[in-house]
């Protein structure tokens, strides 16, 4: 496949709070190719947002820390990058779209100003005039009339606000877009519109994207690959076909999909699974899914499973550890 735009290896992130240390991400491995869209799914608290924030080093100051691992954006080593380096990357090479459009825009600045700001920061050679024109253009792209650029956020609906946020994210045509549940806070009818628009723009600009979502229908529709996250680790990752049509799955994925996942079935939301995720302040020994797993074995209680690969498909579970040499996966 094409060149790698993002490479995360063995990432560990910890939140230090007054009561305890919270291990939000525990050895996350992830690769992303140029132009690719990766769906990142998992229960609330799995560490999806934390992982995305780590890529931009936007973890809350003095609370969130990357304790181990490496993150590379192309050739750039994010872990050792300075604040000044990170500022050049944020908004220009990598943009992030946050979950709640209602609170993600500054209430006292006109939306035109908020879009122009990211251009002012990164496109120093653009004149005022050019920036204005680019703002009009990008508003047009996300389907907002340029006459409204002098309006304030409270004058827009939730869906329109999310369009403005997407406009900010795409203004500098980033190589990578991190979209953290971009449609969760929106009405169902608006969700489809916004997603469709995002996919169109992404294709047009050849942007890679990590789409964090709960909606498996959306994943099947617009993602090239899917990663399933549990307790700060990716426990299964593969192409759409691997995940939706493949024969073998991590027990958690099966639980999540409610049955063996199937692309042809009606799009459905993730199913709740009995039990709870392990307390992120006290990580268990062995597999983190052992408490909830029907197939739990002796070895699961003692050892964290290794990643087992078959071509593009990876499953992190003892069921597939050694057996997959004899068993074929398709």
């Amino acid at each position: 496949m094409g060149e790698k735009i993002l490479e995360i290896e063995n990432l560990h992130v910890k939140y230090k709070t007054d009561e305890s240390d919270i291990y939000a991400v525990n050895g996350l491995n992830l690769c992303l190719n140029k132009g690719e869209t990766l769906g990142l799914v998992g229960e609330t608290g799995a560490g999806k947002t934390t992982a995305a924030l780590s890529i931009l080093k936007l973890l809350p100051k003095k609370i969130g820390f990357i304790t181990e691992g490496s993150v590379k954006l192309g050739d750039i080593d994010i872990i050792n990058a300075t604040d000044a380096d990170m500022r050049l990357i944020r908004g220009d090479m990598v943009s992030m779209i946050f979950q709640d459009p209602m609170t993600s825009l500054n209430p006292i600045l006109r939306i035109g100003e908020q879009i122009a700001e990211v251009l002012q920061i990164h496109k120093k050679d653009m004149s005022k005039q050019q920036i204005e024109e680019r703002v009009d253009e990008i508003l047009n792209l996300v389907g907002i009339s340029k006459d409204r650029k002098n309006d304030y956020p409270h004058q827009f609906s939730g869906g329109m606000k999310q369009r403005v946020i997407i406009a900010i994210g795409l203004a500098c045509e980033p190589d990578l877009l991190l979209a953290d549940e971009p449609t969760t806070a929106l009405d169902v009818t608006i969700q489809a519109q916004v997603l469709e628009m995002m996919q169109e723009l992404k294709d047009k600009l050849n942007t890679s994207m990590i789409l964090i979502t709960h909606d498996l229908g959306v994943v099947a529709q617009i993602c090239d690959r899917v990663a399933i996250m549990y307790a700060g680790q990716i426990i299964e990752i593969g192409n759409i076909e691997d995940i939706f049509e493949g024969e073998h799955h991590h027990p958690y994925t099966i639980g999540l999909f409610g049955s063996i996942p199937n692309m042809n079935e009606e799009s459905k939301r993730l199913k709740p699974i009995a039990g709870m995720m392990p307390d992120p302040s006290e990580l268990p020994v062995g597999c983190s899914f052992k408490e909830r797993c029907a197939s739990c074995m002796e070895i699961c209680k003692a050892e964290n499973p290794e990643e087992a690969y078959l071509d593009t498909h990876m499953i992190k579970c003892h069921l597939f550890d050694r057996k997959n040499e004899s068993k074929t996966m398709s």
């Binding site: 990170m86 946050f98 993600s104 500054n106 946020i165």
Partner: peptide
């Protein structure tokens, strides 16, 4: 601590 401050940081603002 509000979300729009994080948005501003994500833009690369100083």
């Amino acid at each position: 601590r509000s979300d729009y401050i994080r948005t501003a940081q994500a833009k690369g603002a100083t």
